[in-house]
Design a protein around this nucleic acid. Structure first.
Length: 412
RNA sequence: GCGGGUGUAGCUCAGUUGGUUAGAGCGCCAGUUUGUGGUACUGGAUGUCGUCGGUUCGAUCCCGAUCACUCGCCCCA
C-alpha cells in the first residue's frame, strides 16, 4: 500500500462512483429545473465572516468544524461548510433583490473538519435549492414537494421519511425558549453533561438528545406548539395541509430542531434508517431573517440541501451508459484511428486499444461492453470496406466504408 | 473533539499459539487459438503483512506511538 494517501476525510471519485454522483446531481437539477429553478455557482470559499456571522457563533459548524485559513494578504477565508450563506451573500452582492422571487439550485463540494464516518466526510458534496423573496407558505410546500420529487426520481421514496416541525417566528421562539429553559432548569442536575451545556447555549437542542435520561425529562417538556403565536400556528397549518393536498407523506415531529441559527418557521428532514448514525439525507427550512442579518434588505427565504454521498449510497445502480463501438485495427493503426474519428464525429462512442493482436483487442472490446466491433482488416481495406461484428449475437457482415456511419447509427 | 473495533496482493479475505520460501478466490498477464471476444483448460506475476519505534537470538504475530478506515457520541447532508 502506498504511503501517498489523500487527506483524511477526502476521497477520490473514480469513474464508477463518479457516475453515481453525477446521476444523483442530475436527477436533482432536472427536477429543480422543472420547478423553475436555475443553477447558481458561488465560490467554494468566502470571507470567514460570511459563515461565522450567519450560522451562529455557538454552532458546532462555526466553533470547531470550519476550514479557515489566511490568504497571502492576511484575509481570513473559509472553505464553505454549507451552501446557503454563500448564496445569500451572492444575492446581496449582485443586487438580486430586483429579481424576486428567485429560485436557485446549487451543487458542489462542502468542507467540514469533522471526524469522518460512513456518510460523513471532510470534503463532501451537496445539492441544494433556495427560494428567496416569498413570504407565503406556498413556498415551503413547493420546496418540500421538490425535495420529495427528487427523492422519488432516485427511487428512494420508500426508504426515507419526512419529518417536519415549526420553529415559529422570532417572538414565538423567544417565548418558547424561555418556557423550555424554565422547565429544564428544574432538572439541571439530572441532565447529561452535554445537555447541561446545551441548556445555556442552545436549549432547543436538548429536545433531540439521544441520552436516555434526557429523553425521559424531555418527554414531559412543554412543546413549541404551545408557545406559537396565532400567525405562526396558521402558517404551519397551511404548510402541512398543503403537503396533504399534494399527497406527500410526512409526520410532524415537535422535537425536530435545526442546528443553524438562521432557521425559523418550517424545519424539515428526510431521514433513513439505512445509513447508521448519519440518518439525515436531505434537510432544510425557512430563514426569513438571514439576509437582513447579513446586511441586505430583509428577504424571506426557504431551502434545503441534500448530501450527494449519502444519497448515492442509498440509490440503486444508475442507468447504464450507452454502449460503445470498438474499432479493431489489423495492421494499420492510423487508418483505424481515422475510422474511429469518423464514427465519433457522427456521434458514436468509440473505444480503440493502442496495442496488441486481434485477440487482445477483441477481449478489450468485450470488456468495454461494446455492442459492435468494427474490424479494419487488410483485405476489407483493399475493398474500401470494414467488417462489423455483432458482439452480442456473434454474426458479422462486411460494410462499405462510405456507408459505415449511417449503417451503425441505424444498428445502434 | 471523546470512546470502541480494524489495518496481510488491485479487490474480498484466510494464516502464523513468535521461527527458514506468507496463502486462497476474484481480477491482472501469458498460452491452448499468428483474422475473432465472452465459456473452458494450462501457466505466471504480484506484498517494505499501514508506518515508526520497543521487547526478543529472531516480530507480519507481543508492546507503545502514529496514520488511515470503521462503529458509537457530539454534530450534521
Amino acid at each position: 500500500m502506498s504511503s501517498l494517501q489523500p487527506v483524511r476525510g477526502t476521497h477520490d471519485l473514480l469513474p464508477d462512483e463518479s457516475r453515481r454522483h453525477r446521476w444523483v446531481e442530475e436527477a436533482a437539477f432536472t427536477a429543480a429545473r422543472r420547478y423553475g429553478f436555475g443553477e447558481v455557482s458561488t465560490p467554494i470559499f468566502e470571507f470567514t465572516e460570511v459563515f461565522s456571522r450567519t450560522l451562529g457563533e455557538t454552532s458546532d459548524v462555526v466553533t470547531k468544524e470550519m476550514y479557515t485559513f489566511s490568504d497571502r494578504s492576511g484575509e481570513s477565508l473559509t472553505l464553505r461548510p454549507e451552501g446557503t450563506a454563500g448564496v445569500a451573500r451572492a444575492f446581496i452582492s449582485n443586487g438580486l433583490a430586483q429579481s424576486l422571487p428567485l429560485k436557485l439550485f446549487y451543487r458542489g463540494p462542502m468542507f467540514r473538519h469533522e471526524r469522518p464516518q460512513k456518510g460523513r466526510l471532510r470534503q463532501f458534496h451537496q445539492v441544494g435549492v433556495e427560494l428567496l423573496g416569498v413570504e407565503s407558505p406556498l413556498a415551503d410546500v413547493e420546496v418540500i414537494a421538490l425535495a420529495w420529487r427528487v427523492l422519488s426520481e432516485l427511487g428512494l421514496a420508500s426508504k426515507v421519511r419526512l419529518e417536519i416541525n415549526t420553529l415559529g417566528d422570532a417572538e414565538s421562539r423567544e417565548a418558547y425558549r424561555n418556557t423550555l429553559t424554565a422547565y429544564l432548569s428544574d432538572f439541571r442536575s439530572a441532565l447529561s453533561e452535554d445537555s447541561r451545556n446545551r441548556l445555556d447555549r442552545n436549549p432547543l437542542r436538548i429536545l433531540d438528545s439521544k441520552d436516555e435520561g434526557d429523553r425521559r425529562i424531555v418527554e414531559n417538556a412543554p412543546l413549541m406548539t404551545e408557545s406559537l403565536s396565532p400567525a405562526a400556528r396558521e402558517f404551519f397549518q397551511t404548510v402541512t395541509s398543503g403537503l396533504q393536498t399534494l399527497g406527500i407523506p410526512f409526520m410532524v415531529n415537535p422535537r425536530l430542531v435545526r442546528g443553524l441559527d438562521y432557521y425559523c418557521h418550517t424545519a424539515f428532514e428526510f431521514t433513513t434508517t439505512s445509513l447508521g448514525a448519519q440518518g439525515t439525507v436531505l434537510a432544510g427550512g425557512r430563514y426569513d431573517e438571514l439576509i437582513a442579518q447579513m446586511g441586505g434588505a430583509r428577504t424571506p427565504g426557504i431551502g434545503w440541501a441534500a448530501g450527494v454521498e449519502r444519497l448515492s449510497m442509498l440509490v440503486e445502480e444508475p442507468p447504464p451508459l450507452p454502449r460503445p463501438v470498438s474499432v479493431i485495427p489489423m495492421g494499420d493503426d492510423m487508418a483505424a484511428m481515422h475510422v474511429a474519428e469518423r464514427l465519433r464525429r457522427a456521434g458514436i462512442s468509440v473505444d480503440m486499444g493502442y496495442s496488441g493482436n486481434m485477440k487482445k483487442r477483441m477481449a478489450r472490446a468485450n470488456k468495454a461492453n461494446a455492442r459492435f466491433a468494427v474490424i479494419c482488416g487488410q483485405e476489407e481495406t483493399a475493398r474500401r470496406a470494414v467488417t462489423i461484428r455483432d458482439l452480442d449475437g456473434g454474426s458479422q457482415e462486411e460494410v462499405p466504408l462510405d456507408l459505415l456511419e449511417q449503417h451503425l447509427v441505424r444498428l445502434l
